[in-house]
């Protein structure tokens, strides 16, 4: 699979037409919405109390729509101006910022009740400019995020890690910045449905209760229940000739009559049809 983050910086990849394509594509939108709603589920906010949520890399506001459905007020930032323009066109309900996650964020301490981010973290592992140091950028990002979250709030990052080193780097930095938590891998046995969610807690205890890492989906199953592939079955072919042991002759009476008719139509000489035509011969000595 090609990785967009290898091709160019995000503000260029998601510029102009690509931004519109990305949002117009119903398949991408559906996947994004599904991941966003799983992320909101992992946030584990108390039901019925609308929160103030940060969406890192909000893009055109696809994940914001999901947050809105859950009744939350959201604030989002993205580095791609073209994506933000699309968000404006679609009248996204949240407040938008043009901001680079690697530069940290400018929110007062304890602002947000939670943070979600869909398909962003892997971009921070790249150095797109000479001045970019991925680790320094990650440190700045996670440390400013930690301070802008309420104590005990969660931050859920869905991301596509390229390899184990990236996971180690990201989690190492997050832990260094004070976060606790870990990685939740949904559908680990499925190639397509496998998704990585980094669940971070800004403070381990909420009202004296220790936060537990949520359970992943589909760990014991073969794969995504929604995957409909062709299943192998060992059922034998339903063929009448295969079923019976006694094979009937292909060249039976009907076949002979058909052949004779063909010859006659060509004007060839053939014996007349009679009761003896293609009759069975008796057993010989």
């Amino acid at each position: 699979m090609s990785r967009p983050e290898h091709q160019a910086p995000p503000e260029i990849i998601y510029g102009g037409d690509e931004a519109k394509k990305y949002t117009g594509n119903s398949r991408i939108a559906a996947i994004q919405a599904e991941m966003a709603s799983r992320a909101v589920e992992l946030l584990n906010l108390p039901e019925g109390s609308p929160g103030y949520i940060l969406d890192v890399g909000c893009g055109s506001g696809l994940s914001g729509e999901v947050l809105e459905e859950y009744g939350h007020i959201w604030v989002g930032f993205d580095i791609a101006p073209a994506m933000l323009e699309v968000a404006l066109e679609q009248e996204a309900s949240g407040d938008l910022f043009l901001q680079d996650a690697g530069q940290g964020m400018a929110f007062r301490p304890g602002t947000f009740d939670g943070c979600i981010s869909i398909s962003v973290l892997q971009w921070l592992c790249n150095a797109d400019k000479a001045s970019h140091h991925p680790k320094a950028r990650l440190i700045r990002f996670f440390s400013t995020l930690y301070s802008s979250l309420k104590r005990g709030a969660r931050a859920i990052f869905q991301f596509y890690p390229e390899n184990d080193d990236q996971i180690q780097l990201i989690m190492g930095v997050a832990v260094r910045c004070g976060f606790e938590g870990g990685l939740v891998v949904d559908y680990p046995n499925s190639r397509k449905a496998k998704k990585f969610y980094l669940c971070l807690f800004a403070g381990q205890e909420v009202q004296g209760v220790k936060q537990q890492l949520p359970a992943a989906l589909g760990e014991d199953e073969m794969g995504d229940p929604n995957e409909h592939g062709v299943q192998y079955t060992s059922k034998k072919r339903n063929d009448s000739r295969m079923r019976s042991n006694k094979r009937s002759s292909l060249k039976d009476k009907n076949w002979v009559l058909k052949k004779k008719e063909q010859l006659r139509s060509r004007g060839d000489k053939t014996a007349n049809d009679s009761q003896y035509t293609a009759r069975k011969r008796g057993p010989r000595f």
Binding site: L88, L96, L98, M105, K129
Partner: peptide
């Protein structure tokens, strides 16, 4: 602009 604040910083400000 258009309701979107530009919070990007120059390199020496990070």
């Amino acid at each position: 602009r258009d309701g979107i604040p530009n919070m990007l910083l120059a390199e020496h400000e990070v």
